[in-house]
Structures are given as C-alpha cells and as structure tokens.
C-alpha cells in the first residue's frame, strides 16, 4: 500500500489536519476523510456540478481538484453555510420555495449561488440562469431554484446580510 500524504486544509474556517491517499480529489477527501458528506457526486468527471464547493470564494468542482493542491486555500462546503444553527438566507429560501426537491444537487447549487450573490447581490434572472448552468438538476426544472435565489437575495438585502 502506498503512503498517504498529510495536509492541513482550511475547511469552513477551521484548520483540519488530514491524511489521505495522494490520488484523492478534494471530493474524496471531504467525503471520506473528513466525513463531510454534504458535498455530493454524480459523475466524478466534471459533467454534472453536484460536487461544487467554494475554494477561495470561487465555485469549483471538487471531483477535479487534486486534494494535494488544496493546502492554504479556503474551502467552503454546504456544512459551513449556516451561521451556527441559523440557516443562510439561501438555505432558508431553497427550503421554503421548493429549490430543493430530492436535495442531491442542492449543496452544489447553494455554494454556486453563494458565490454569485457575493459578486452580484441583486442578480437578474438571466445572470442566475447562467451562474447555475453548470449544475444539473433532474427534479425541479430550475424555476423554483431561480425563485429561491431571488428570494434569498431579497431577504439578504432587507436584512443587510453579506453573502
């Protein structure tokens, strides 16, 4: 058996020391070595968007990101989205408005939408469509996802919550 590598990863604001097989992608390390199973996988080839996470604020696909390259970068997953027990406005809106049906694409879309709202607090419907066009959803037809993101943007504006 070949040797594991050791890295300190910044995940959801916490430094995590982790030892893993060097062939693993960030997706595998998050799910298998850090037990953060909120990040999903649908193809592991960059063809569905289910594993989207934020790295240094940008939505990336964890299935294509080598974990050995992730040291020193800020990784955010769905587990870190809520503020303590208070849901992020995106989470609340997705739950309220049907943005999540089976919930499998949801973590990836939430993280992607978070990055969008950080850059553009009041995105148009067109911008939302473009921003999540790399996240396949088989359940919703996307419309309730758009509405959830719009509602979250509205609530964040009212409450002056940063994304």
């Amino acid at each position: 058996m070949m040797k594991n590598v050791h890295r300190t990863l910044q995940v959801n604001g916490e430094a995590q020391q982790v030892s893993f097989a060097p062939y693993k992608t960030l997706l595998e390390v998050l799910r298998e070595d850090l037990n953060l199973t909120g990040t999903k996988h649908g193809c592991e080839l960059g063809e569905c968007g289910a594993c989207a996470v934020l790295v240094d604020g940008q939505p990336l696909l964890a299935c294509l990101e080598l974990a050995v390259e992730c040291e020193g970068r800020a990784i955010e997953t769905v587990e870190g989205l809520a503020n303590g027990s208070v849901l992020h406005p995106l989470q609340a809106a997705f739950a309220d408005l049907g943005g999540a049906q089976c919930g499998y694409c949801t973590p990836g879309i939430l993280m992607t939408a978070k990055a969008l709202l950080e850059k553009e607090p009041e995105p148009s419907r067109e911008r939302i469509r473009e921003a999540i066009s790399g996240n396949l959803c088989r359940c919703t037809g996307y419309q309730q996802i758009y509405e959830s993101i719009e509602e979250a943007a509205r609530r964040m504006k009212e409450a002056k919550v940063p994304a």
């Binding site: 097989a21 062939y23 693993k24 992608t25 595998e28 080839l45 299935c63 080598l66 050995v68 390259e69």
Partner: peptide
Amino acid sequence: MMRLPWFGFHSP
C-alpha cells in the same frame, strides 16, 4: 466513485 490512479506530484 471514479478515482485517479496513483501518481507522484510536483508543484514548481
């Protein structure tokens, strides 16, 4: 899950 084969790694 699809996995990468083993490889060595350099980061110049």
